[in-house]
Amino acid sequence: MIKQYLSIAALCTFGTLVAGCSTRGQVQPDVMQIATAPLTCSSKAECDLWWQRAQTWVTGHSRYPLESSSDTLIQTTGPDGGKRALAYEITKTPNNDGTSTIGFAAHCDSALGCKPDPWQAGADFKLFVRNGTANVPAPGSTPAPAAALAPEAMPAQSIASPTGEPASQ
């Protein structure tokens, strides 16, 4: 009987420690700002360059192989059952004003959360596509103003929620 209580107490202590160390659901505001900023290219030349960068980023960051790659869709296989690795779906949608919006979605299939964090991956992706480099600000640093990241009044995009569930933004 005492052995059973000790086992339960040890299990509860372990669960409390794991929960206390978890950062799931906490997204740095600067990362969120970059990850949710619309990614809209303004000319055919810019859109072609950004689309090429999008494919480069996905193939360099995905643990899953490409399933589809066209002028409007870049998609990896996955996610596989219980794995924390992100699967990606990138879309390019033309807008009525001649611009195109590049959408980003990332998700995994693990109850433990995704690695890397989908919000961080989205911010990294968008910075790379815009600039050719990925340099997400460190926590506590001053992010670039939103106006420098994207024009105002742009269409919504997809990104994964902090729990790994796809969400629209």
Rank of each mutant, 00 (worst) to 15 (best):
K83P: 02
G113P: 02
S158V: 14
P155F: 05
C114N: 06
T40Y: 05
L11D: 05
A138F: 06
I34C: 03
S62H: 00
R53G: 00
R130L: 09
G122Y: 01
G78S: 00
P38S: 05
A147S: 14
T13Q: 12
L86F: 00
I74C: 04
P65L: 01
A45H: 03
Y88M: 02
A160I: 06
K126V: 05
G81V: 11
M154S: 09
A87W: 09
L17V: 08
T93H: 08
L73P: 01
L73C: 02
T40Q: 09
C41F: 06
E165V: 15
P29S: 13
D48N: 10
T76R: 00
A85R: 12
E46N: 08
Q120A: 15
S158I: 13
V136N: 03
D48A: 10
R53T: 02
K83T: 07
P79S: 08
T142H: 05
I8D: 04
A123G: 04
G103A: 08
S22I: 00
A37S: 12
F128D: 07
D97K: 03
Q55M: 12
D48G: 08
G140E: 03
R130M: 06
G140C: 06
L112V: 05
M1Y: 12
E152R: 12
W57F: 12
I8Y: 07
G78C: 00
D30S: 15
G113A: 05
F104H: 08
D124R: 10
A106N: 02
A156L: 13
N135V: 07
E152Q: 14
A156H: 12
T23G: 11
D30H: 15
Q52S: 12
L73Q: 08
S70H: 09
M1I: 11
G98K: 03
P29C: 10
C108H: 03
S70A: 09
A134H: 01
Y64S: 03
P65D: 04
L127T: 10
P38G: 06
K92T: 09
T99I: 06
C41L: 05
K83I: 03
V18I: 15
Q33A: 14
P29G: 09
H107C: 11
I74H: 02
A10G: 11
R84E: 12
T59F: 04
G103M: 01
R130Y: 01
G103L: 03
L39M: 10
V27W: 01
Q4E: 14
T72G: 11
A146G: 08
T93C: 07
P166E: 04
T142W: 07
A150S: 12
N95W: 07
K44F: 15
L86W: 01
G25W: 08
M154N: 10
P38C: 05
L11M: 11
V18E: 10
L17Y: 07
F128M: 06
A9V: 06
G82W: 07
L49E: 11
N131G: 10
T91R: 14
L66Q: 02
S69W: 05
Q120V: 14
N95P: 05
C47Q: 03
W57K: 00
P118F: 10
M32S: 14
M154T: 10
Q157S: 13
A160S: 12
E152L: 11
V136R: 03
T23P: 01
C41I: 04
I102D: 00
T56Y: 13
I159G: 03
V129L: 02
T77E: 15
M32I: 06
D117M: 09
G15S: 10
S158E: 14
A134I: 04
W51N: 05
G82S: 08
E89M: 14
T91K: 15
G164R: 06
F104T: 01
